[in-house]
Design a protein around this nucleic acid. Structure first.
Length: 855
RNA sequence: GCCCCUGUGGCGGAACUGGUAGACGCGCAGGAUUCAAAAUCCUGUUCCCUUUUGGGAGUGGGAGUUCGAUUCUCCCCGGGGGCACCA
């Protein structure tokens, strides 16, 4: 039998596409543009299944849109700066640059083997000076426009490795490599003023209607706009600290009469003053600094406080004072770094009050509560009526908030304040493998931007990783430079950009990757915003919010005439696999197992524990290497499996049986085409005048498949498109007719099958198309259009229910009248028997859908 | 702790705006073909009772709205994700 050879066929078509530049985007072509983009990969050196899924998704859309006549841009490049390269440098002694630049061609080959309809002519890596020099220019432009600031911020500091740690490098409060307890340390860092755009970024979310709701909600929470008040508490008998008053931020000024203490963040300026005078306070602060910087760590840690001995005056109650604590759950970065505590109506405050024996006064009473309402161990945060609150008594929470703010304003004791959880974007990284920040520090002139003519500031290659810390700091010559302003000896900034800066504008750069300016305005307007962006949901907030901000900032600086970079967003699920552990709990890879029927053992014959399916990861050894899958089954089969079964936005379970099923399908469509080939009419043969019932039925299936697959691709529900193609394949495989009208319908069906298969399995589809006698490649052929007269049924099968239970079905002409439908239903023998002797209360007829008889 | 998502056969999943639950695939069972195997083809496959016919239950659990709920509302339970220097 004629078996399909994936290896030779895939190589053949990849060469043809490359030689013909089939997928090189034309900047000047006619036709509506369509910009489809997958999140560019980090060049780790090895393709993983997540990449296969991500790029197959965008490839299906790219090929489909192309067939539909769009002028498609589907570019490719590398997010090439970042931590893994430095880790490799330290672990293997390879230079990050060499490591990265070796990885890129290796990975490019693996991507090419997938048969992507990508425009490789626009490829770049963010570590190319050609790319990052423009990034430096954009930064300087932001600097001129007041979007850059330098200020202090706290970081996770590893005291042994002398390095800043990412949150993920902090495990149980210890550095992942050194194991030393992590400290919080304050450094001078560069910030981009994303908070200037907080309202705009929030408002624009409403217009991103082709983004997943989930991502919009996450971004909304991240921005975290809240309305409340700044309240001033004057310090009593103040001779210890320089401040006259403590400013707190609250969203609940209505609960001021329930206040029982004030608390400051441990890095609040007043806290620092106190620590300078009081050893116990200093010790307390030091202890709290052991705690991580994440919100989760702070929220779940035990609430702890330190009584400063300071007292403040209540703004509304004459003569009433509150104690001032330092507290570990107050964040300096949020609001004003100080709070007032109302234990009855905030759980954190309540836990704190119980611990330090502070009064708990309920001031908001739920609507159904009586006069004796008190708060026990659970704070009441719901709506209600204000009590025990002087001039606020009787008001609702919302009225209370407004009235309290008015009074605070009158008394000069506070004012309305809008607060954001969003903080400015700290872009300084104390690392080598990133884009140098183009700034010079001069003893006389202060901060001096590198003049545009001196760009790029190139990362030096001659660095050592044998000692801890940033190699740029101890480079012999690189950081020493003459001040561009006064000419005296000065020092370069040795921090590099957060790699999210690199990925904030790459989508725009693809539109003119060789321009000698950062952004070619005309090209950017032509292609941007990207019509569809695809990537992992793990980027829902940071990357996607930063890229949005960056684009808004570019707009403000006059670089582009749009504000939002991505019109449509799709977040794909992870690729998962079962996990295996041996008797000692050691993880085993699938290759290390021996299967004998249902029994699974390790190589020593010991039983293996099968764990639940988890995201493929090296640490759990549950990865499947795409290269070996492609080698065994071909890229088409791997792609098909990725697209079948699971909806693209959900996690996909990798299974051996599944990939074999996909392989069978690949062989099957090849077989049913080649077996039938001799019986088919010539290519482009005219349709017969009439079709018999069998041929007509086949044609209906074919045209319904066109509709179904098209809808599935449009909706990015490729699994439903796959199901439609299986049905079409089944219909073609079992069709036996040999009359002229039959074989014409078979040719039509096989051609449509090849066309519909094209986006998902492009190589076998091209081969089938060619085998069917076509000279023009499938990649140059337009998408099939369904014949409506074949997809609309003229009769419908309707269910007849009695009391909501289906008793039988009837066949009715399409759009039959209610009366006819009801009459037909009652004429049915089963229905007559079932309703016989019963009282018919009601008959519901929904045309073309259902009849329900209530007895 | 806070926020969000999710739950349908042995498994992955399908079901348009509330209208025949389980499409399609995997697996499994039986059969055909074969010296045998692989491959392929055919039949069956939600569960329970029943010989067929047929009947009953059923979309995590409980309530509600409705002629009718996988779909809408409320409560509960299970699973997953995010929470600011990984990309």
């Amino acid at each position: 039998m004629n078996r399909y050879n994936a290896k030779t066929t895939e190589a053949k078509w990849q060469k043809i596409w490359q030689d013909k530049n089939t997928f090189v985007a034309d900047d000047h072509a006619d036709g509506e543009k369509y910009y489809i983009l997958s999140m560019f990969p980090y060049p780790s050196g090895r393709l993983h299944m997540g990449h296969v899924r991500n790029y197959t998704l965008s490839d299906v859309i790219a090929r489909y849109k192309r067939a539909c006549g769009f002028n498609v841009l589907h570019p490719m490049g590398w997010d090439a700066f970042g931590l893994p390269a430095e880790n490799a440098a330290m672990e293997k002694g390879v230079h990050p640059g060499c490591w990265t630049r070796d990885n890129i061609p290796a990975m490019r080959d693996q991507f090419k083997a997938l048969g992507l309809a990508a425009d490789w002519s626009r490829e770049f890596a963010t570590c190319d000076p050609d790319y990052y020099q423009h990034e430096q220019a954009l930064f300087l432009s932001f600097f001129e426009n007041g979007l850059v600031e330098r200020r202090q911020s706290s970081v996770n500091w590893d005291p042994v490795d002398h390095t800043v740690l990412a949150n993920e490098q902090v495990i149980d409060g210890k550095g992942w490599r050194s194991g030393a307890p992590v400290e919080r340390r304050t450094l001078n860092q560069w910030f981009l003023k994303i908070t200037d755009f907080a309202d705009e970024l929030l408002a624009e979310l409403d217009h991103l209607d082709r983004w997943p709701e989930k991502v919009r909600v996450m971004q909304q929470n991240w921005i975290g706009r809240s309305e409340g008040a700044r309240v001033f508490f004057n310090i009593v008998d103040n001779d210890r600290v320089s401040a006259e008053r403590i400013e707190v931020y609250t969203t609940r000024p209505d609960t001021l009469f329930g206040a029982s203490f004030c608390a400051l963040a441990i890095d609040h300026p007043i806290a620092k003053e106190i620590a300078a005078q009081d050893n116990a306070a200093a010790t307390f602060i030091e202890e709290c600094q052991q705690l991580g910087t994440s919100e989760e760590a702070i929220e779940t840690a035990e609430k702890r406080g330190f009584d400063t001995g300071l007292e403040v005056k209540h703004p509304f109650i004459e003569g009433h004072t509150l104690k001032v604590y330092l507290a570990n759950f107050v964040l300096m970065d949020y609001g004003t770094g100080a709070i007032f505590g109302c234990p009855a109506h905030d759980q954190r405050d309540l836990d704190f009050a119980h611990k330090y024996d502070l009064p708990v006064t309920a001031v908001v009473f739920p609507d159904n509560a009586d006069e004796n309402f008190t708060v026990g161990t659970k704070a009441y945060t719901g709506p209600g009526t204000l009590r025990n609150s002087d001039f606020l008594d009787g008001l609702s929470v919302i009225e209370g908030i407004r009235t309290a703010i008015d009074r605070l304003t009158e008394l000069n004791a506070g004012e309305r304040m809008i607060n954001y959880r969003l903080r400015d974007w700290g872009i300084s990284r104390q690392r080598y493998w990133g884009c140098p920040i183009p700034i010079i520090h001069c003893g006389d002139c202060g901060i001096v931007p590198v003049p545009a003519a001196d760009l790029p500031v190139v990362l030096p290659e001659d660095v050592e990783f044998d000692t801890p810390g940033n190699p740029l700091e101890r480079h012999a010559t690189w950081k020493h430079v003459d001040c561009p302003s006064c000419g005296k000896a000065a020092i370069r900034e040795t921090d590099t950009f957060d790699t999210f800066v690199d990925s904030s504008w790459y989508a725009i750069r693809y539109t003119a990757p060789n321009a000698d300016v950062p952004i070619d305005r005309e090209a950017a307007s032509r292609w941007m915003p990207a019509d569809q962006y695809i990537g992992g949901v793990e980027h829902a907030v940071l990357h996607l919010l930063y890229a949005r901000f960056f684009t808004h900032a570019l707009h403000k600086c006059g670089y582009v005439d749009f504000k939002e970079p991505f019109k449509g967003l799709f977040t794909q699920g992870m690729v998962c696999h079962e996990t295996y552990q041996d008797a000692d709990g050691k993880w085993l890879s699938p290759e290390e197992l021996i299967r004998d029927g249902d029994a699974i053992t390790d190589r020593a014959g010991r039983p293996v524990k099968i764990g639940r399916s988890e995201k493929m990861s090296k640490s759990k050894k549950n990865t499947v290497d795409p290269a070996s899958i492609i080698d065994t089954f071909g890229a088409d089969t791997a792609r098909w499996y990725m697209m079948s079964d699971s909806p693209p936005d959900r996690d996909l379970e990798w299974s051996e049986d599944g990939i074999e099923g996909a392989w069978r399908h690949t062989q099957r469509i090849w077989r049913i085409t080649t077996e039938r080939l001799d019986t088919l009419p010539a290519v482009h043969a005219a349709a017969p005048d009439n079709f018999g019932e069998a041929a007509l039925e086949l044609r209906r299936t074919v045209h319904k498949a066109i509709e179904g697959v098209t809808a599935g691709i449009e909706a990015i529900r490729f699994n439903t498109a796959v199901a439609q193609m299986y049905e079409l394949t089944n219909a073609l495989a079992s069709f036996k007719g040999m009359e002229p009208d039959d074989v014409w319908a078979v040719r039509e069906g096989l051609e449509v099958l090849a066309q519909l298969t094209g986006p998902m399995m492009p190589h076998v589809a091209e081969e089938l198309w060619e085998t069917l006698g076509h000279i023009t490649p499938l990649s140059e052929t337009s998408w099939p259009v369904a014949d409506r007269s074949l997809t609309v049924e003229d009769t419908v099968t309707m269910a007849v229910q009695i009391n909501g239970k289906v008793r039988t079905t009837i066949t009715m002409p399409l759009d039959a009248s209610k009366e006819d439908t009801e009459a037909t239903a009652f004429a049915d023998a089963k229905i007559r028997a079932a309703v016989h002797g019963k009282d018919i209360r009601k008959v519901i007829v929904v045309p073309n859908r259902i009849v329900n008889i209530v007895v």
